[in-house]
Structures are given as C-alpha cells and as structure tokens.
Design a protein around this nucleic acid. Structure first.
Lengths: 243, 243
DNA sequence: CGATTTTCATATGTCTTACATTTAATGTTT
DNA sequence: AAACATTAAATGTAAGACATATGAAAATCG
C-alpha cells in the first residue's frame, strides 16, 4: 500500500481509500481483522491519530466495525441491507431537501419505481405482507390520527407492498425513494375527505395484490399517484395564493 | 448540544450524530460554516482529535467539506446527486458481493427498475440521449472489444436510457442498480454470437425510444432481461459442470 | 485436580501539547 | 499604487501519555 504525502488530499482520506479499495477488491474479506492502529500507522508511515481518522471514515460508511480490548481491533463488516438502508434514507432525504427537487419530480420517481415492483409483489406477496397492508389501511382510517402518523402509516403500507416482491435489492433501493418522500408529504395537511380518498385507493391496491393481479396493482398505483399529485398541487397553490 | 460521556458509543460518533441531525433538521444550512475545531471541542467538552474524528465521519458521507487557511473551516455541503452517486454505487456493489445475492435476483431488480423508466424516457429523451445510445451500440459492435469494455459500454447505454427520463431522482436510484451489476456481468464471457444478440436487442430498445413508444421499450427491455438471464444461467451451469 | 479469581498484556478511546502548512487579510516598502 | 512581506487563524499531522475494556494466561483456593 502506497501513500503520496504530496497529494492534494488528506493522508487520512488516502488511507481510507486504500483500505476501501482492498475491501472492494476482495483483498480484505468479511470479518477479517485489520492490523492494529499502531501497526497501520507504521505501515503507512503516519501517526496514530491520522490512522484513526481514516478508520472513522470507513466506520461512517459501515465498512468496518471496531472492538476494544485484548482481541479487539477493526474488522471488515458484512454490509447488510438492514445496515445500509438508514444511510440510503438519510442521503435520499438530504438530496431532496438540499436540491430543491419539486414534489412532482420526487413523486413521479417514487411511483415509477413502485410500479416496477407491482407485478413481482402481486405474484409473490405472502399473507403476511397482505396483512400488514390491511392493518395499515385500518390504522389510517382511525379518527384523531395526526398527519405525521398518517404519513408514517402510508410509508409502512408502501414498504409492505415493496417487500412483497421478495427481492432484497428492490426493497433496498425503494426504501430511499419511499422514505425520502415523507418530509415532503408532511408539508401537506390532509382533510378528512383527502384521507378517505387515499384510503379507498389503498384498498384498491390491496385488493389487486390479494388477487395477485400485477396489472391492476400498477393501474391502482397510477391512480394514487394522480391523486397525490393533484392534492399536492392544490395545497401548494392555496399556500401561494395566501401570500 | 449535549453529549453523554457514559454512552456505549464513541464520543466522536455522538458528536457526528448531533451535527448530522442539525444538518438534517435544517438548523445548519448549506454552505454555513461550522465552528472551528477548537470551538467545537470546547462546546462539546472534548479534545480536538475527538472533534476531528467526528468531522471525518461527516466528510466520509459528503455532509461537510473542509478548507484550510485563514478563512477555512468545515462547511455544510450541498449534497449533489453527482457526489452521492459514487457512494451509492460503492454501497450497492458491496451489498451484492457480500450478501451472496444471486445473479438472478440482482438482474430482476435492475430490469424491473429500468422498465419503470421506460415510458418516461420514451416520452422525454432528447436527441442527445438517443445519440449516446446509438454510439454505444456502435462501440459494442466493434471487433476486438474486451469483455470489460463491452460491459462498460452496456452500462453507458443503459444509463443514457435512464437519464432520458429527465428525472434526477430516478437517475440517482438507478445508478446503483445498474452499475452494481457490472462486476457480476464481468464474470461472464461473451461469445461473438452472444454479443450479436445483445446488440440486436439494444437496437430494438433504441428504436422504441426513438419512436417514443414506452410500451415497446418495456417489452424490449423484458426481452433483454430474458436473454441476459438465460445467458448467465448457461454460463454458470457450464462452469459448475466443469468441476 | 478443577474451578475461581487475579493478574497481565493488548487494543481502542481520549487528552494534551506541539509543530507544520495553508490561506486570506493586513501592513510595509518602493 | 502595486508589489512584497508579515501576521493571524485555521486545518493537517505528530508524539506521548493515560484511561478503559477485554480476553487469556497465571495464580490461588477449595
């Protein structure tokens, strides 16, 4: 491993990159222990704080974990879908909020991706997925539900739909698209009539999934997207008119 | 901001989390300068190396950038789609390689997502997107092309297709799914006949995109998925039989 | 002899101090 | 007024020390 002390980037960034490359290329395998911080410092010819900064960078990406104590050290992490999802959600959320992505664009992307899951989910969903969807619909119909709780239940409903496809790659990718919409949805106040319409559409989706009809599921999702878009449009228009 | 010194997690992780929360919640806005490392150390009542480890964690996620010199410091980054994509690709690639995701599952997810882009891309693609697709097809037909170069061109072709949808959120999400497949594709040796079939399917996709026919694009994508799946299956079967 | 306790070595976590380097603003000189 | 030198503030890096967690070996006791 070679480090260029005259590079324009930090030593810790270079070291992190070298170790990251070793993990990606397979030179370092899952659960393998890295040399101790002192050994790494000697190998790269830097001080221990610099090595530690590099390791923290990798830890922030869940590429390694550290253990204290006698047999401790830094170990290559098995990057799990569960561990990667929160990261993915945080990044997606920030991307939307920092780049002035319109509600329309985000909504379009989300429903396009969800429709991609529709035929697979219709074919493979378990009774468990269906039960979750029904339960969330029931929750959404409860009176006195706050807008935040309504949106959270909406997210849970859609995630059950996506998970029904039984494809962890899809579930991972969709988690970002679905969850990142929540802050945008939370900007909307849902009237009782709005909620009733959305719940009816959710029931249509659940029915199509229960009937294992992928085409009908996609159609129902398109209807829900349409409803969401027009609802958002009217809310934003009213808000703009008030000023 | 409060830090619990008796927590089970590192001080630097807690500090990074506190700053991250401030960015997500909007308390810290884009391009705002954080306090200097010395000031942060005093605020959180920790030493400067600990603060630095926290900042490196955030830098690894592209949440902040640092500048040296008199007016330097740590600044909140505008998280751009361009900056987030490499991260997304790295994570997706590692997820596939570390979790024994089958070629079949990854391929299914990728083409399902791509089909989601088909109608949008057919409707909105610019001449530029179409030209890129045609150029990549031409490159793929060149004799003497290595398998790696063929796969790289394949990725470029599909990314042009996805970008044609004109939705940055979709392009971002799809980048991970498409690029992460490349290492898996590179495990396949393409015969001349295989390449010819794939190129023909690519031409069918490009034709459908040119005709702005979303349905035909989706159908052509399904055909390509089928071809890819059977090809991979035969390659892996032959490899298993050799042992 | 076996089980328990103690000791110990090793590793990460944290603090302190110091110095190097970069960079912009300020001051000085010609 | 322009060019140059100085300075101050910030990050980058190094070195050493101590605290703490933890597993393993050694010592002790029943």
């Amino acid at each position: 491993m070679k480090i260029d002390p005259d590079s324009t980037v930090d030593l810790s960034a270079q070291i992190a990159g070298a170790i990251r490359d070793a993990i990606i290329s397979g030179s370092l395998i899952v659960d393998e222990r890295l040399p101790s911080e002192a050994e790494l410092a000697e190998q790269f010819d830097v001080s221990r704080p610099t090595v530690r900064e590099a390791l923290k960078r990798l830890a922030a990406q869940s590429l390694i974990r550290t253990q204290r104590g006698a047999t401790g050290g830094a170990f290559v992490n098995r990057l799990s879908f569960e561990a990667a999802q929160p990261q993915q959600i945080t990044t997606s959320t920030l991307l939307l909020s920092m780049n002035a992505v319109s509600f329309e664009t985000a909504c379009e992307a989300r429903y396009a991706l969800e429709r991609a899951c529709a035929p697979l989910s219709a074919a493979r969903r378990t009774p468990d997925h269906l039960a979750t969807m029904r339960a969330e619909i029931h929750r959404q119909a409860q009176p006195g539900l706050t807008d935040e709780a309504f949106c959270a239940s909406d997210v849970a409903f859609h995630r059950a739909l996506v998970d029904g496809a039984g494809n962890p790659v899809l579930s991972y990718q969709l988690a970002g698209a679905v969850e990142a919409m929540q802050p945008l949805m939370n900007m909307i106040t849902f009237t009782a009539r709005d909620r009733a319409r959305i719940i009816a559409l959710h029931e249509g989706i659940a029915d199509a999934i229960e009937a294992q009809d992928g085409g009908a599921t996609a159609t129902a999702l398109t209807a829900l997207e349409q409803e969401t878009q027009t609802l958002a449009q009217s809310v934003f228009a009213a808000r703009a008119a008030r000023r």
